[in-house]
C-alpha cells in the first residue's frame, strides 16, 4: 500500500526538475558566438548558472540534431575542439522561448504575489 512517505519528493529533486527545463534556454542564450563545450560550461558557471557536464555535452549534440545549433571542429594549436553556435532556426526558436519565458515569469510572479498578499 502506498503511504504518504512514498509520495514525498525531496526539495532538491524539485529544484533539479525546475532547472532542467531552463538549461536548454540558458545554453542557447550564450551561443550567438561560437563556443566549445568547456568554454560554455565555464561561461555559464561564471554567470551563476551551474550545469553538469554530463548534461550539457549530450544536450548540445541533441540540439544540433534538432537543427537548433551548428557545429565545427576547429584545431587550435594541436588540439581539436568542437565549436557550437546557434543556427538560424535556433535563433528563431530562442526568440520564441524568450517570449514564453517572460510570460511564464510574469504569471508566476503574479501568482506568488497574490498568495503572499493573502
Amino acid at each position: 500500500m502506498k503511504t504518504d512517505k512514498d509520495t514525498l519528493i525531496p526539495t532538491e529533486a524539485l529544484v533539479q526538475e525546475l532547472r532542467r527545463g531552463t538549461v536548454v534556454m540558458a545554453a542557447m542564450t550564450q551561443l550567438y558566438e561560437p563556443q566549445y563545450g568547456y568554454s560554455l560550461l565555464k561561461r555559464l558557471a561564471d554567470k551563476g548558472f551551474e550545469v553538469d557536464q554530463g548534461t550539457l555535452y549530450p544536450m548540445l549534440r541533441r540540439l544540433e540534431g534538432n537543427g537548433l545549433l551548428e557545429s565545427d571542429w576547429i584545431v587550435e594549436g594541436s588540439r581539436p575542439r568542437r565549436y557550437y553556435k546557434l543556427s538560424p532556426l535556433g535563433k528563431e526558436t530562442l526568440a520564441s522561448l524568450t517570449k514564453e519565458w517572460q510570460a511564464l515569469v510574469a504569471v508566476l510572479n503574479q501568482l506568488i504575489l497574490e498568495e503572499e498578499i493573502k
Binding site: G37, Y38, S39, Q53, Y57, P80, R81, R82
Partner: peptide
C-alpha cells in the same frame, strides 16, 4: 573526440 577534448580542456584549466 568530444570527451577527449573536454578532458584536455579541464586539464589545461
Amino acid at each position: 573526440n568530444e570527451i577527449r577534448s573536454l578532458i584536455e580542456d579541464r586539464l589545461m584549466d
